[in-house]
């Protein structure tokens, strides 16, 4: 028998581990990834591989040669970043865009802050926004969803939000635009027919991932649900007041990166608040900003910016939103 072990209590540990949590996120992303591969074929696969490989490589190189610390590539967190970034790219984007985005995501947004757990912003979103600003053409050339593994044609469509945005600028009303594009029904978008980023193809696939994350107790529902409620309420009010200019709640919930963003990006542990109270404020903030950017900003899509802006408030939310303490509220 080897020497007895002595340590302070507790002497057992739960099944949770960082790797397990990250693996669960990857599993939850699987349906969305499969759907994107189905609709966008080889190029989506190429982007996915580029993103994941670059993220892992960049993290490995930085840890090995710059920080000279232990290499933590295997904790899967950089793979999650890679997959999320790939899902946030237009499916027809060239491969080098994916590589640059991944370098920015890991190298600048994550590792320069000190690695896992230290970053202020969600790395995948920083990568995406960086690309959006640097390569606006490549990042807004959309492909309409195709069937299984067709080669991607030069045919370019537009995202539902962009269609609405352009239409409104040219003077049409929401109703006219929707009538001109029969594909833009909520039911269609739910089951994958919307053009857009690779991960936005199917809302159902994302919701399956959400349910999986909840069942595995990886995330709490607070952030996504408050985002949805806020967006629904705000867009509802706007569209009731002026249905010609503002789209309705269902349309807004199911388009753009809202589902992807609210389920997978806003709930990123590192860049979201820890307490329920903080999470609710965070979710409401993202919802409000998203709607404001969509309706009044120059970008048709607002979730990325909304999440990044709210990421900034997390330290403050953590400082002021304390959990419910025992022994301070109810007395006797």
């Amino acid at each position: 028998m080897s020497k007895t072990i002595v340590s302070p209590a507790p002497h057992v540990h739960s099944e949770f581990s960082t790797v397990r949590l990250m693996r669960d996120v990857l599993i939850a992303l699987a349906p969305a990834v499969l759907v994107s591969l189905y609709f966008y074929g080889w190029n989506a696969l190429l982007l996915l591989v580029c993103c994941v490989a670059t993220c892992m490589a960049v993290q490995y190189l930085i840890e090995k040669f710059m920080l000279k610390c232990s290499v933590t590539v295997m904790d899967c967190s950089c793979i999650v970043t890679g997959v999320l970034l790939a899902l946030n790219l237009p499916p027809a984007a060239p491969w080098w865009v994916a590589v640059i985005g991944s370098i920015v995501a890991i190298g600048i947004a994550k590792m320069s802050f000190g690695g896992l757990g230290q970053n202020v912003f969600n790395p995948a979103l920083v990568g995406r926004v960086f690309l959006l600003i640097s390569f606006p053409v490549a990042m807004t050339t959309w492909t309409a969803p195709q069937s299984w593994f067709h080669s991607v044609d030069a045919f370019s469509g537009a995202t539902p939000l962009a269609l609405i945005n352009e239409g409104l600028h040219s003077g049409s009303t929401v109703q006219e635009i929707l009538a001109a594009n029969p594909d833009l029904t909520p039911a269609q978008m739910l089951f994958a027919r919307a053009g857009g980023s690779a991960g936005e193809a199917s809302v159902i696939a994302l919701l399956i991932g959400f349910v999986y994350l909840l069942c595995r107790r990886v995330i709490k529902p607070h952030i996504p649900v408050t985002i949805w409620i806020t967006v629904a309420v705000m867009t509802g009010i706007f569209s009731l007041c002026n249905p010609a200019e503002y789209t309705g709640p269902l349309f807004n919930l199911f388009t753009g990166g809202l589902m992807l963003g609210s389920i997978f990006m806003a709930t990123d542990y590192v860049t979201s608040p820890m307490t329920n109270k903080g999470m609710i404020i965070f979710g409401v903030g993202i919802g409000v900003l998203t709607v404001l950017i969509r309706f009044f900003g120059s970008y048709p899509e607002g979730v990325s910016f909304a999440i990044l802006i709210m990421n900034l408030t997390v330290p403050l939310l953590n400082k002021y939103c304390k959990p419910v303490r025992y022994g301070y509220g109810r007395r006797k």
Binding site: S2, K3, V6, P8
Partner: peptide, 13 residues
């Protein structure tokens, strides 16, 4: 050594 300490590596602890 007579046993194997497995807690936080701090003399205080």
């Amino acid at each position: 050594k007579t046993n194997d300490y497995d807690g936080y590596a701090s003399c205080k602890v």
